[in-house]
Design a protein around this nucleic acid. Structure first.
Lengths: 349, 349
DNA sequence: TTATTTTATGCAAACGATTGTGGCATCCAA
DNA sequence: TTGGATGCCACAATCGTTTGCATAAAATAA
């Protein structure tokens, strides 16, 4: 059987509490060198491992954090997960994982589940249909860090990227390349990131005086299929856009499917900027111009925020951390300005 | 504060044990309808949630399983993770996650850690430098399922895909397309999957009487960089291959980088088959011909095996489950037979 | 020597749930 | 009226650790 404190204590001829104290390494406690070494020896001999379950129960501290994301198979979130797991391990924390599939009820059930299993803190990319349950957590002063998405109306810790600026920069880049009719394809606009991106998109439209047409905007889900259908619809518009700003890489793949089905080529017929970079982006049909989020850094920042929050009993001032994104200019955007110039230089007919 | 059994009991004027029994819904126990309804009402009013930590401690059952993979940010493993997480949730299990980064010591530490935290079972994609610790688990009859990789010498549950056949089929396909000099680029050959693939490769080489040259084989890691360097080396050979069979998608991306740096084009100058399909594979520079693993099914199978294993106290006969892979023929392989034919039909000079 | 401090350790309660055992009513049968 | 059966519930132990408090022995001071 697995040895317990009691087993070690019996063999060493001391009380379990003594063993506990010695093994905890409380230096300042008065323990004779003799018993100390004896206990260490016996613990080693028996290969004693403290029962963390009992320990967690007694201490009300599990050394475990929860990580809840919409979809762990999404490269963005699996990158975050990896980063968080590595940080956690360093600080002797374990991470338990949950997928919500963008389902609000599932998120709530999952949080309650993890809570009753005793996590010390939670990192969450919320679904954002509702926020009451998150507010409750805050009120209870439960260590919580939101990641990727946060609530403007809630005072929480959060690590987010500057989606508004990112989208604005993308539009700015497209505008400079001569695009005037730009489509915006995304998941659901109640999601924080999408809302901010849309804001950035709109700001860009206004700033550069581009075509403002609600038909160019589509948001109906995060799947490959939804990206496919949105794109098909937008491409069949009487006046279809010359460029697309696309959020989410499954959506992007769906969009490409639609584009190639229509025998269009990128960037000659249509330009593309993808909102998330991932491995392989440079090697797509055309090297994809994308916006990069500093995934590793975001995970680290989230864990560190959480760690500090867990360490201090008192209320910690909440901090929303905004990280900058990067526009990776590759080859999926055509410079219409140059093209127009060329076309005008050699007038037809 | 969070209400406990005791709180509910006091309010209901009964003993905690009674509350426990009622809330467990043991129908056959003699409990009066009056106390039963009263207890339910009060539990609901207080929003009583059983403390799963205490429960787990008492019952020695945490309703938690461990999932340890080399790298959760690898799409193959994150797909597996997602599938397993979904199955787990359905059966009221939670999954805790670990990355080994192909580091054997880290794997061992992680297993011990999860064990002392009380997981009910473990799904593991092992590093495979050593197997002693896994043998120990088996001897202790601990519920364990290996995934993606297993040990020929160990009797364990496992869900693996038929890598040998997959590689053989790929080589067969390349051979039929007229390729005679085929490179094999992979991670580390001590890994089960890679070993089997290499076996399939060799079998193919023999069967179709292709060029058997150890210089065409390279295995030095799972990273983008290692793929890059391996490919560079192989492409600079005096007699460089006409096709490459590549294991692992980070490696594949590295290979493409090397190929394009050399200004070679796919498939005209060099053909490619990738060993793992992932979202976007169809939309690469050239639609990638890949081997697909049934990720979702593998995850489900692994969970089900584990679940059965956890349910039965007695020793369950171990089963290794082998799933078939699929060769997705897209556009990254050139038919040299046709090309040669064409070349011969129109002799130059 | 006695009083006092220090050193080293034991004792027991506690965390929150589960479960075997046992006991007090009540009821029915003989 | 007594016996046993049955319905309903309480009691207490238990899981493995931790920790405040008590205490005995040893060391030091008076």
């Amino acid at each position: 059987m697995i040895p317990t404190l009691k087993d070690v204590a019996e063999r060493a001829g001391v009380h379990p509490s003594t063993v506990s104290r010695v093994l905890q390494g409380k230096e300042n406690l008065p323990i004779s060198e003799k018993t100390r070494t004896s206990i260490f020896a016996i613990a080693k001999e028996l290969n004693y491992q403290p029962n963390q379950l009992a320990r967690a129960f007694r201490l009300k501290k599990t050394q475990t954090i929860g990580l809840i994301v919409p979809d762990i198979s999404n490269p963005f979130f699996s990158g975050i997960a990896r980063s968080i797991e590595i940080c956690s391990r360093r600080k002797d924390y374990t991470v338990v994982l949950g997928n919500t599939d963008e389902n609000q009820d599932r998120e709530i059930r999952m949080i309650n589940n993890l809570l009753s299993r005793g996590i010390d803190g939670l990192i969450l990319a919320p679904v954002q249909d509702r926020s009451g349950h998150i507010k409750d957590l805050c009120n209870r002063n439960f260590p919580l860090v939101l990641i990727d998405r946060c609530f403007d109306e809630l005072e929480t810790n959060a690590v987010i990227s500057d989606n508004e600026e990112a989208a604005f920069n993308a539009i700015s880049y497209l505008a400079q390349a001569g695009h005037r009719r730009i489509g915006f394809i995304s998941g659901r606009k109640n999601i924080y990131t999408i809302r901010k991106r849309f804001l950035g998109y709109q700001k860009g439209i206004k700033t550069f005086d581009l075509v403002d047409d609600s038909e160019l905007v589509s948001d109906n889900g995060f799947t490959l299929e939804s990206g496919y259908h949105s794109t098909r619809k937008i491409l069949s518009l009487p006046k279809s856009p010359t460029a697309l700003l696309i959020s989410g890489n499954k959506i992007t793949v769906g969009a490409m499917k639609a584009i190639f089905e229509k025998k269009l080529s990128i960037p000659d017929d249509i330009s593309l900027i993808g909102f998330t970079d991932f491995i392989g982006s440079p090697y797509w049909v055309v090297p994809m111009t994308t916006i990069t989020h500093p995934v590793k850094e975001m995970g680290e920042a989230a864990f560190n925020l959480l760690f500090n929050n867990m360490a201090t009993k008192e209320t910690v001032p909440h901090s929303k951390m905004m990280v900058a994104t990067k526009l990776n200019i590759r080859g999926s955007v055509k410079n219409l300005a140059l093209a127009d110039f060329a076309a005008n230089s050699f007038p037809q007919g």
